[in-house]
């Protein structure tokens, strides 16, 4: 019991450090609290406008659901995202990691503890955002079962984000310049995480039975458009981004409906965690070998 407490206390120290680092810059702290609301506002107005034009619903989704999607999605994604990827890449490149290998704790554990610490403080900062989300998007309150599933999904999403972030950081070690990788990752995430469009919309647009009410590009035929969107949806499921961001919110809003669908999605999240964790562990081992032989 004693040694466990000791182990724990090591990591709590890191968590506290994480918290302190956020509080150190008070203006930053304020900025982080309020300015993201700007993003939310724009999303809100954009989609309100879109839904109004569409008479209250787009495909099979009605505006209340989509607003809920945006609001809850906003909060969840901010809560679950993990900003350590570039930091880890940097530490690996400049060899600072080597110093940490000499110490009696796991590097991953340390980063995770810091991450937890930062998120703990983040909960404070998220309160104003929460308020705005509640007032603005007036999310639909889901039933108990959905809450449970959402919570579970959120937890998985949190872990998945961390593992993915760590993987990217480790992967970046082998790439000469990380910038391009980051941009591609951001672009893919934007499209395939449900940020741009709820993933279910991809499938609804691509659905064979429904005809499109309007064709924006006159020289393209309908079936190829449908095929394209369907393909986008499929690609989304081949990438981890939807598991990182879309799934929890999809569950909450009912876009992922029914016990089977929910269970499947949770399973997919879990599978991604395992897969990426494995990949990460492998890469990390190789990176460590490289560092200890070559010295960073």
């Amino acid at each position: 019991m004693n040694s466990f407490a000791k182990e724990l206390s090591k990591y709590t120290g890191f968590a506290v450090n994480g918290m302190k680092s956020i509080l150190a810059y008070r203006i930053s702290a304020l900025a982080w609290s309020f300015l993201p609301i700007l993003f939310l506002l724009v999303q809100y107005y954009l989609w309100m406008g879109i839904f109004q034009a569409g008479g209250g619903s787009l495909y099979r989704i009605d505006w209340r659901t989509y607003l809920t999607y945006i609001g809850i999605g906003f909060l969840s994604s901010r809560f679950t995202n993990c900003p350590f990827d570039m930091y880890i890449a940097g530490e690996l490149k400049n060899g600072n990691v080597a110093m940490n290998l000499l110490k009696p704790f796991s590097y991953q554990g340390m980063i995770f503890a810091r991450h937890l610490g930062e998120k703990a403080v983040y909960i404070l900062q998220i309160l104003p955002m929460l308020l705005v989300v509640l007032l603005l998007t007036r999310p639909v309150i889901a039933d108990g079962w959905t809450w449970g599933a959402w919570g579970m999904s959120l937890l998985l999403s949190f872990l998945l984000n961390f593992v993915f972030s760590f993987l990217i950081g480790t992967f970046a070690f082998w790439i000469t310049n990380v910038w391009g990788l980051g941009l591609i990752r951001n672009a893919l995430r934007f499209v395939f995480s449900g940020d741009l469009l709820a993933i279910s919309l991809f499938f609804q647009i691509g659905e064979k039975g429904i005809t499109l009410k309007n064709m924006p590009l006159p020289h393209v035929n309908e079936s190829s458009v449908k095929g394209f969107f369907h393909l986008m949806g499929v690609i989304a499921y081949c990438l981890p981004f939807q598991a990182m961001f879309y799934t929890p919110t999809g569950i909450y809003t009912g876009m992922i409906r029914g016990t089977r669908a929910v269970a499947l999605h949770l399973g997919i999240q879990f599978a991604w965690i395992v897969l990426l964790f494995g990949g990460c562990a492998l890469l990390w081992k190789r990176a460590m070998k490289r560092i200890t032989i070559m010295g960073g």
């Binding site: 506290v16 918290m19 302190k20 509080l23 150190a24 008070r26 702290a29």
Partner: peptide, 9 residues
């Protein structure tokens, strides 16, 4: 100290 961080804020 820890609460010092809050106070400084």
């Amino acid at each position: 100290g820890f609460f010092g961080a809050f106070r400084a804020l």
